[in-house]
Simulated assay, not measured.
Amino acid sequence: MAPKKGAAKKKAVATAPKPANEAPKQEVEAQETNPVEEPAVTNGDVKDAKLAEKPTKKRKKAANSGEPQKAARRSGRGATKSQPSQRQLLNYMLSTDAEELCRPDDENVAIKKRGDIRTYSSSVLNPFEELLCAVVLSRPISHRLGLRSIRTILNEPYNFTSAKAVQDAGSEKHHQALWDARTQHKAKTAEEIGHVADVVLSKFTAAGDKEGTQMQRARDDCGQDVSNERQYLKDSIKGLGKTGLDIFFRRVQWLWTELYPFIDDRTSQALHKLGLPEDVEELPAAIDEHWEGLDTTHVAGDDEAAKKRRAFVTILERATGSDLEGRSEALVQAAGAI
């Protein structure tokens, strides 16, 4: 039974702790940290600063007389860049052109070097893969290291794309995958990967799903009730807290329709920076309003309703990704330049 819209809205605005991995300046490998020195301030700098702050006679006169001051002239170089319309911004965020602004530079390099690889930022993943990724991303590591770990485990030679594949690989291969990812908390994350696969196969997998990718039994046992599903996953998956659940439910809602629409607090902040609706009802309405004018060629989905849900999830992910990479403003400017 689908939850009432009011309930979804309350869930969307619930205060969530800032995900440890979703802070671009969180802990990273020591050899990759390059402190930037502040330039020294000289007496000449101080003198120039005071002169710059001192108002001219002309400006004093205008201020004292109450006359409106003329706006300062601006050269073409410093002119304000055009702001995109809501339709332009949504359309750009759904395009493949936006992908590079929504993921770390090393992922862009890996894609150009390796070609068609599975990534968290752009690939369509099954529910098990989404759960595995949520567990990895909820670890106290940087966004960059989280996505690198996901690229490693989802592609050759590991291909941890189902619960059965992970279980068959064994503990040694789990650890090797995390070492190859050159990430942090390798041993702990490797243990969690094995644990997730075991739980999914023993508790979440329905008959007919031999690979353990859909987790339908968990849904059926919870009566497809959102609150029950969140609690069941939290109780069953060791180390999966609110942060990981928000990441998982944000991504899988286009497949599990009872969850839709859902916006977590972290994503709401990212939407705000882009000037998009943060309300759980308003953003889907905006997508509906502009749907006919959007290029949805690359949006997954078997029918229009599914494609709209997938478009909603894509907008959320690219808002969050661009924010984590410090590129929200660059994304807006790129959309306005089209």
Rank of each mutant, 00 (worst) to 15 (best):
K234I: 01
R148W: 06
E282C: 02
K60Y: 00
S227P: 04
V28N: 04
D209W: 06
A72G: 14
E32G: 05
K308A: 09
R318Y: 07
K242D: 15
D295R: 00
G241E: 14
A71Y: 04
R87L: 10
R77P: 05
L255I: 07
D198T: 12
V280T: 15
D48C: 03
V135W: 09
G76A: 14
S149V: 11
P127T: 15
A206F: 12
Q214S: 09
D279I: 07
K242P: 06
E29M: 02
A2Q: 08
L94G: 07
L178A: 08
L101D: 06
A311W: 02
P104T: 12
A319G: 03
V28W: 00
V226G: 05
A181W: 08
D303S: 11
A52W: 11
V332A: 08
V124M: 14
E130F: 13
A7S: 15
R139W: 00
K54R: 14
E192Q: 01
I111D: 06
V109N: 13
R77G: 05
R144T: 09
N21K: 01
D288Q: 04
A311D: 00
L240K: 06
S322F: 05
D303H: 12
P35I: 10
D303V: 11
I237E: 12
Q216E: 13
D303R: 10
K57V: 09
P140Q: 04
W291P: 15
P35N: 07
D225S: 10
S142L: 03
L51D: 10
L274A: 02
A110Q: 11
G321E: 04
P84W: 00
E29A: 01
L94I: 07
A2S: 10
G194I: 05
N43Q: 14
Q231K: 10
V36P: 09
I193A: 08
L240S: 02
A306G: 03
K54Y: 13
L145E: 07
S75P: 03
A134D: 15
A7I: 15
V135C: 10
D45M: 06
D279M: 05
K238L: 01
M1C: 00
D246A: 15
K61Q: 03
R73E: 15
G336A: 10
T257C: 05
T296K: 10
E29P: 00
E22C: 01
R144Q: 10
E27W: 12
R266V: 06
Q86A: 12
N108T: 13
E191T: 13
D180F: 04
A165S: 07
G212D: 10
Q231I: 00
P261F: 14
D180L: 04
H175Y: 02
P19V: 02
R144K: 11
A330S: 05
Q69H: 04
V13I: 11
V109I: 15
